[in-house]
Amino acid sequence: MSVRAMTNLITYRGGVSQLSYVLHRVTGLGVLLFLTIHVVDTSTVFFFPSLYADAIAIYRSVPFMIGEIFLVFSVIYHGVNGARIAVFDLFLVNRWEGRTPDNSVIWTMAISILLWLPAAFIMGRNVLEKLGV
C-alpha cells in the first residue's frame, strides 16, 4: 500500500460519505472472509463428513457467537448501503452531488441499526444463555 493511498483513506473528500465508503469496504471484506471460511466448513459435509461437527463446534464458542452478531450487522449495513449506491447509480445519477447523498448516509445507518437490533437481541440472548447468565 502506497503512502498516498493510506493518506487518501483519511483525507479524500471526508465527511460521512467517505465514512460510509470505508465502512462499505470493511464490512464487504469482512463478509467475504466469513464466506470463504463458511464455504470451506460446509464443503466438509461432502469431503470429510466426520469433521463437520468439529467445524461447527468452533462457531458455537462464545467469541464466534459474538463475532456472528457483528457479521449480521456487516451483512445488513453492506446491503442497505449497497442498495443506496445502486439506486443512485442506476436511477439518480444526477443526485450524487449536493446534500442528498449525505442525508442518505445518515438514513442508511439508521435503517441498518433498526434492522440489526432485533437480530442482535435474539443472538445476544443466546450468548448470555450459553454463559449461564
Binding site: V45, P49, Y52, A53, I56, Y59, R60, F64, M65, E68, L71, V72, V75, I76, G79, G82, A83, I85, A86, D89, L90, A119, I122, M123, N126, K130
Partner: peptide, 30 residues
C-alpha cells in the same frame, strides 16, 4: 455489482435470518 448486490439482499438476508437468528448455530449439524 449493482444487479447482484440488489439480488443478494433477499438471498443473503434470508439465509442469515433463518440460519443465524431463527435456527441458531447450536441447532445446526450434519
Amino acid at each position: 455489482m449493482r444487479y447482484s448486490g440488489l439480488l443478494l439482499i433477499p438471498l443473503a438476508w434470508g439465509h442469515v435470518l433463518i440460519q443465524d437468528v431463527l435456527v441458531g448455530v447450536d441447532r445446526i449439524d450434519l
